[in-house]
Structures are given as structure tokens and as C-alpha cells.
Nucleic acid binder design. Structure first.
Length: 516
RNA sequence: GGGCCUGUAGUUCAGUUGGUUAGAACUCUCCGCUCAUAACGGAGCUGUCGCAGGUUCGAGUCCUGCCGGGCCUACCA
């Protein structure tokens, strides 16, 4: 991949009806790790996240709280910004769908679709769920608790709605979508999601209702102010807004569109893999390169829900386990894309085994040895032995491997590869036994310590995307200047003779609170 | 009803186009080391690879049926 090549990656915009929980943190952290990786690899990155602030649900929530919807959105949107700061997220932009630039972009996209004959006005009637933002067939409904009421299959309340709606000619895009999936086999990931989407599109694709008249909290439809735009049309457009649309001559638009990756939870892949590319094709705009639908976390084996009261916020977890540990856990614990379980036991296992014992202790045992036995000075190496070369090569071979894994979002495999080298390094310490060499061959001891320190430097540089704070501390301890921490710097080895500060552990063990 | 995915050591998972004694990590046991965050290294233990058939010289790996788990989607009421 050429240096300076653009990389545009997004999280979904989060619906401000929720407060940030582990699921939001998960998506954002994955994208953050990817964005950091690409920046370190010399790519020109645009990392976008933000909040989705329109729709009837929000309107009602605000009204229930007795406040203006905009005030409500301001308040809740701030929670997501706070989460980003807390989780050490390096987003380049934070977009809100209530911003003027976004309203402008959404209306421009609407007008473009209208101009191309992709939108028509029709009468629509059906059972509508405010919570799900969706219409249901009569046959799908289940009886509610009180006689006469009906519920959606999701358990949400539905109401009979009759209104005049604008429709998008989705049905027309069935074939082009199927062709696009076929010619872009990496468009939908993981693979299993592609099958789902394909079978959905192969069925009957109905035209999509894309406006509402029953409430006002949304982007007004240009030319017909009785209507506001369907929230998903409004929401998806955020990815264009952020790069300057409708100004297709804008520098950011030209650089970054189409997006390289939209990372989303598996619940919203249909909107991203069907509606979004259809809107774009219909508007004559390029389609994003890839949609990744990741899985869900359960908590201690149970589905997370408000009613069960096991709702885990990002704040709680970060406070309890630490931000780096949490980030590492989320990306390492399960194959990225699959569902997984978040348990205290598994979390502590990762912290203590992988971070503290393997990586943290490797750095500590080496650096502290240098501190005590080499006047705190990094030794100048003599000629390398085959064992040294093997050790160094293992570290050098990581970057190409990580490039592959990160570009496919198989973060767990990338981390596994890094930890394999950490294991090699721990073995190398034992085999070389610098504590014995200290008495028999101090020069050789120096070379061994140098090799280890150099390997630790590489490991620290490579783990920055996942554990940015700890990796930075480690690089500080190696006296690596701030501008020597990108992947290009991997090729420039440490210079012997540097005086190193007294080392401190960067990954503390998690110690259980004694039971009272 | 149709479709997709899935069921492998106590746990979480790998197992490439079917090929010699089924692997890793964590846990556990023993041994070694003593630089280090009671950390590191080595060895070992545990499996009828969901069940039953079939194809094959040979199947965890392909086919059929059944059982269990998850998901998408349709329809009748």
C-alpha cells in the first residue's frame, strides 16, 4: 500500500436515545485501532464517528423529559464524545445529524434522487413501530397484553399509520445490487453476512418509504415541508456529509469518497449493505468499498438488556479494568465478527496472562536487568548469532502479517501473531540466560539485552493501535522520540549507548478485591 | 416453510483442496530457572472430533438423515 494513500473509515452514528455501553465502545474501539494502525502505516486517515439525532423516538423521549429535542440531543450526544475521550479514541471528526452541513447534504442527496426520477409520492398505510422505525405486515403482528393492541415481532408497540409518503424505487436496484455483491466479494464481511444479505435481496425488494408526516423532528423534505426524511436516509448520508457532500469538488470528498470501510453492528447491516448502496447508485455516486458487520457481546453469558439490569457501560468497564486492557480484550478475546461473551473471569485472564505476565513482564525483566547491571545504559551489540537473527526476524515479520490481518479486520489473529513473538522473546531470555552471561561473557550479555530491547521496541510500536497508552509508556522508557514511533521507524534499530530511565511496569496485574 | 451458520480436550477456539500417532491458549500436575509484575521456560494429563448411516484404500474434513444451538427470511392462522 503506497504511503499517503487515503483511508476513510467510519463507525455508525449512534442513536442518542441510548447511553454509551459496551457495544458502542466495541465498534468505536475496533475502528480506532484500525485508524491508528493505518496512520502509523503512513496512510492518510479520515476516521468519522458521531450521533444520529433525528426521528420520532428522540422527539418523544425529549418530550417525555419535558425538554426541547435539540437540548435533549446536545445532552446525550455529549455522552458519546465523553466515551471517545475515555476510551482514548482518535476520531478525526464527530458528526451530528442536526448540524446545518448535514441537513444541507441530506437535502441535496434527496434532490439528486428526485431529479433522477428515483423518488415518487404515494399513499401508504400500515402498522408502524416507533421504536423499530419500521412498518410491519398485519400477519407479523402478535397480540399485545391489553386486548385490542398489537405488537411487532420485536415486542415493540405498533400503531396504525396512514399517510402520504415519498418512496424510493428500491425494487429497481435489485439486479445492480446483486451484481455488485458478485463483483465485489469483499464488500460484505464476514462472509456469513453476505449470504444473509444476498438471500434478502434475492427475495422481493419493495420500494422503500422514505418520508414521514406524523412528526417534525427530522430533515425537512425539500419542496414539501409537511414531510421529514426517513431517519435512515438522513442517517446514512452522514458518511457523505463529513467529506463535504454536496460539494463533490471538496478536497476531502475527492480524497476520501468512497469510504474504505463502514464498521457496523450486525443489526444494521441491511441498511448499510442494501439501502445505502442503492441510494448511492441511484444518485450516481460511488459505493463504499466494504461493510463489516461485527457481532454482539453477552455479559456473563446473558444478553445485555435494560430490563435484566445487566447493562454494562463503557465507563464502568474502563474504571474497573483500565482502558488499554479493555481495548485489548475486546479485540483479542473473540474472532472479530462473531458474537462473544464478556465475563469478568475471561477479562482478568487476558489482563494477567497476556498483558501482565507475557508482555509487561517481558519488558520489565529486560529493562530492569539493564538498569541494574549495565549502568542503566543500553549496551552496544557485538555480532549477532543465528539465535539473535531468528529473534529479530520474528519481530520484523510481524508488520506484513499485521497489515493483512488489519485490512481484513481479523484483529484477533493479528494480536495472536504479536503474542507469538512475545512468547519467542520470553523463551529467548531463558535460553540466553543473561544472568549467567553476566559472569562468563559480559559482551555477549550486552548483545542479548540489546536484541531483546530492540524486539520490545518493535512490539511496542506495533501494539500502539490497540494499547496506545501502555505502548507509549514503553516507548518512553526506551527513549524513543515521538517522531520515531511509526511503522517506518521499525526499520531503524535502537542505538546502543543510550541511558534508559528506571523501568516501571506498564501492564499491572488485576488483583481481586478481597471478599469482605 | 425456505435459507444460512454452528456443534472438536474442563473452558475458549484452530484444523488448509479428505491422507501417517487431532492441535493452540487458559486451567491443573510435575520439573527447571532466578533477570522479572508470586512472573518466565520445559514436560505431562484430559477428547468415541453432536448421533446414525453412506462414499472412499483412507473422513473432524465429502454425502444423507436425525438431535441440539444461533441467525436471516416467508407464509398460514
Amino acid at each position: 500500500m503506497a504511503a499517503g494513500e487515503p483511508f476513510y473509515v467510519t463507525t455508525p452514528i449512534y442513536y442518542v436515545n441510548d447511553s454509551p455501553h459496551i457495544g458502542h465502545a466495541y465498534t468505536t474501539v475496533a475502528v480506532d485501532a484500525l485508524a491508528r494502525f493505518m496512520r502509523l502505516d503512513g496512510r492518510k486517515v479520515m476516521f468519522l464517528t458521531g450521533t444520529d439525532e433525528h426521528g420520532q423516538k428522540i422527539d418523544r423521549s425529549a418530550r417525555n423529559a419535558g425538554i426541547d429535542p435539540q437540548v435533549f440531543c446536545d445532552r446525550v450526544s455529549q455522552n458519546f464524545r465523553d466515551m471517545n475521550v475515555l476510551m482514548n479514541v482518535s476520531n478525526d471528526q464527530f458528526i451530528r445529524t442536526t448540524e446545518p452541513r448535514h441537513i444541507k447534504a441530506s437535502q441535496a442527496l434527496w434532490l439528486e434522487l428526485e431529479k433522477r426520477g428515483e423518488i415518487y409520492l404515494d399513499k401508504f398505510a400500515g402498522w408502524y413501530s416507533v421504536r423499530d422505525e419500521a412498518f410491519y405486515e398485519e400477519s407479523e403482528l402478535i397480540p399485545g397484553k391489553t386486548p385490542g393492541t398489537k405488537l411487532a415481532p420485536t415486542g415493540a408497540e405498533v400503531e396504525w399509520v396512514e399517510e402520504e409518503n415519498y418512496f424510493f424505487r428500491l425494487s429497481k436496484w435489485r439486479e445492480p445490487l446483486l451484481e455488485y455483491y458478485k463483483s465485489h466479494p469483499d464488500f460484505i464481511a464476514p462472509r456469513a453476512r453476505l449470504n444473509e444479505i444476498e438471500s434478502f435481496v434475492k427475495g422481493e425488494l419493495r420500494d422503500l418509504s422514505i418520508s414521514r408526516t406524523s412528526f417534525k423532528w427530522g430533515v425537512p423534505v425539500p419542496g414539501n415541508e409537511k414531510h421529514v426524511m426517513y431517519v435512515w436516509l438522513d442517517a446514512l448520508t452522514n458518511y457523505l456529509t463529513a467529506v463535504g457532500y454536496p460539494d463533490t469538488d471538496a478536497a476531502d470528498y475527492k480524497t476520501f469518497w468512497p469510504a474504505d470501510l463502514h464498521m457496523v453492528g450486525k443489526d444494521i447491516i441491511r441498511f448499510h449493505c442494501v439501502y445505502w448502496p442503492a441510494f448511492l447508485m441511484a444518485a450516481g455516486l460511488p459505493v463504499p468499498k466494504r461493510i463489516f458487520g461485527h457481532g454482539w457481546w453477552t455479559v456473563e453469558g446473558q444478553k445485555m438488556s435494560k430490563s435484566l439490569g445487566n447493562f454494562v457501560t463503557a465507563n464502568d468497564l474502563a474504571a474497573k479494568y483500565g482502558v488499554d486492557s479493555l481495548r485489548y480484550f475486546m479485540l483479542r478475546e473473540l474472532p472479530f465478527g462473531s458474537d462473544g461473551d464478556f465475563s469478568h473471569r475471561a477479562m482478568v485472564g487476558r489482563i494477567n496472562s497476556d498483558l501482565a505476565n507475557d508482555f509487561g513482564n517481558l519488558a520489565q525483566r529486560v529493562l530492569s536487568f539493564i538498569h541494574k547491571n549495565c549502568d542503566a545504559t543500553l549496551p552496544v551489540p557485538a555480532a549477532f548469532t543465528p539465535a539473535d537473527e531468528t529473534m529479530l526476524k520474528a519481530a520484523h515479520d510481524l508488520l506484513p502479517k499485521l497489515r493483512t490481518e488489519f485490512s481484513e479486520q481479523t484483529f484477533h489473529r493479528g494480536l495472536e501473531a504479536v503474542w507469538a513473538v512475545i512468547g519467542d522473546a520470553n523463551r529467548y531470555v531463558d535460553e540466553q540466560a543473561p544472568w549467567s552471561l553476566r559472569k562468563t561473557d559480559p559482551a555477549r550479555m550486552g548483545t542479548v539485552l540489546y536484541v531483546l530491547t530492540e524486539v520490545i521496541r518493535q512490539l511496542a510500536i506495533l501494539t500502539q493501535p490497540v494499547v496506545p497508552t501502555a505502548a507509549a509508556k514503553l516507548l518512553d522508557q526506551l527513549c524513543v522520540p515521538e517522531d520515531q514511533r511509526d511503522f517506518l521507524a521499525l526499520a531503524t534499530p535502537l542505538k546502543g549507548g543510550t541511558v534508559l530511565p528506571k523501568p516501571e511496569g506498564v501492564f499491572p496485574r488485576f488483583v481481586e478485591e478481597p471478599k469482605p
